[in-house]
């Protein structure tokens, strides 16, 4: 990729983040009622309902998976059916409706239990990214001046690097990849997005009437930032977090696919299952198909939910 292409990619990303910041901002004249009216809209929004249903089912599944899985996902129950040349993957059969994987473990059980790790990776990566982004965004938007300039310089450089490329680079730094290196790599690429988003809506808050009114009452700078700016600026960041969950799950799969994921497969995870499946891709595509389908459906669920949330909170699209 040339310099110019990556620069314009950075620009596009920045423009998108700034649009998001504008969209989710709590409007001056609506306040808390904005969330209420957003909820009223969401309750009848079919897109939101589909997304939320997927997400709720996914989370429920992750919670109860160990109890509803028909078999132990780590037990090599079908190992004696595997023949390296003729039949590398156990076929579907009674008791094993989706067959087995290349180590003879029950596919359905692995998919069900895999939801757990997938959720953990997505949520942890998003939480870490959120923590980093909130810290940087609050520093930049709250303190301003040279802190803002310094933080935003770093953030803009990070944004100008294609995010997957950066995730691969970070993951590749670690000699022995594991679950936490995957989470860390994905978290770091979310940090500049959250930071820029929060900084944008913090700056809008800084010039708002109620912050001026608070300053006119002598309220201390720390209280201005944490009580009067941050809670009003956090809306777009929360919306972004739901979207990032989808991206994190997909990115985790991408890392696994490129061999930068967690090599320990005793605990199933969809991205990792997908990564493992590529060696059989020509002959046994179903091995990749099942985890890929799960990833797509869940990512779609989070995306639909996030996008309709953003839409509902956008003052411009209301009524």
């Amino acid at each position: 990729m040339t310099d110019r292409e990556s620069a314009s990619l950075g620009q596009r990303k920045k423009a998108r983040i700034d649009r998001l910041a504008a969209a989710g901002r709590i409007s001056e004249d609506e306040g808390v009622s904005l969330w209420q009216s957003a909820w009223r809209r969401l309750r009848t929004d079919p897109i939101f309902l589909v997304g939320a249903t997927i997400v709720v089912l996914f989370v429920l599944l992750a919670l109860v998976a160990p109890w509803i899985a028909p078999h132990d996902p780590t037990a090599r129950l079908l190992i004696d059916q595997i023949n390296r040349q003729a039949n590398p993957i156990p076929d579907p059969q009674p008791g094993h409706p989706l067959g087995g994987d290349d180590a003879g473990r029950d596919m359905l059980s692995r998919l069900l239990v895999g939801s757990q790790q997938t959720l953990i990776v997505g949520v942890m990566a998003t939480l870490f990214g959120l923590t980093g982004g909130l810290t940087l965004g609050t520093l930049a938007g709250g303190i301003g001046r040279w802190v803002d300039a310094a933080v935003m310089r770093v953030v803009d450089v990070m944004l100008s690097i294609p995010s997957l490329l950066m995730a691969f680079s970070i993951a590749a730094v670690f000699a022995r990849p594991n679950q936490w290196t995957v989470i860390l790599a994905i978290a770091i690429i979310q940090v500049p997005i959250f930071a820029r988003l929060l900084r944008g809506s913090m700056l809008a808050q800084r010039h708002s009437d109620h912050v001026l009114a608070a300053r006119a009452l002598g309220v201390r700078p720390a209280a201005i930032v944490f009580r009067h700016m941050l809670p009003n600026a956090i809306g777009p960041v929360i919306v972004q977090a739901t979207l990032v969950l989808a991206v994190a799950i997909i990115d985790a799969a991408a890392l696994s696919f490129l061999g930068l994921g967690n090599p320990d497969d005793s605990v199933p995870e969809w991205g990792q299952m997908l990564g493992r499946a590529q060696q059989y891709f020509n002959t046994e595509p179903q091995l990749a198909f099942y985890p890929a389908l799960c990833i797509i459906v869940v990512a779609l669920g989070f995306t639909l939910m996030g996008e309709s949330l953003r839409e509902a909170l956008d003052p411009k699209s209301r009524r």
Binding site: I26, E28, D29, V32, D209, L212, A213, A216, L217
Partner: peptide, 16 residues
């Protein structure tokens, strides 16, 4: 010294 502003709604913090 204190000051009150023109628009009472936007001068109040909506989430506090």
């Amino acid at each position: 010294m204190a000051m009150i502003f023109q628009d009472p709604l936007s001068s109040l913090n909506p989430v506090v």
